[in-house]
Amino acid sequence: MRDMLILTCPYCGIRCDETELAPGGEAHLKRFGPGSSDEEFEAYLFMRANPKGVHFERWRHAYGCGKWFHAARNTVTLEVYGTYSAQVHEPPQEIRDAISTRVPGWRWKGES
């Protein structure tokens, strides 16, 4: 059964049981508001990645400190590469490095 993750909250350091967390879907989406094209707005609101492998997600430590954080993990092996602040637009370098070490050839989008 694929439903009982443990993620470490980067704000309070607790290894959270999944039942203490609330999921928030894909991370690092850019908001499009008034003035955006229909295509941009549609992508922002509805289009989500569903990769087999490395994925970035938003989680909230709902039954704890209440903070949102990001998790980089593998949807196949369930390996967690790291959790980090929700207040960044893209994964920090140490998270990218951790992924690259484990998944040779992996690149953050747009990164050559």
Binding site: G66, W68, A86
Partner: peptide
């Protein structure tokens, strides 16, 4: 309440 926290923490931090 959760939604307010979410916007403040993840978009308007």
């Amino acid at each position: 309440h959760a939604s307010m926290e979410e916007w403040l923490q993840t978009e308007w931090w």
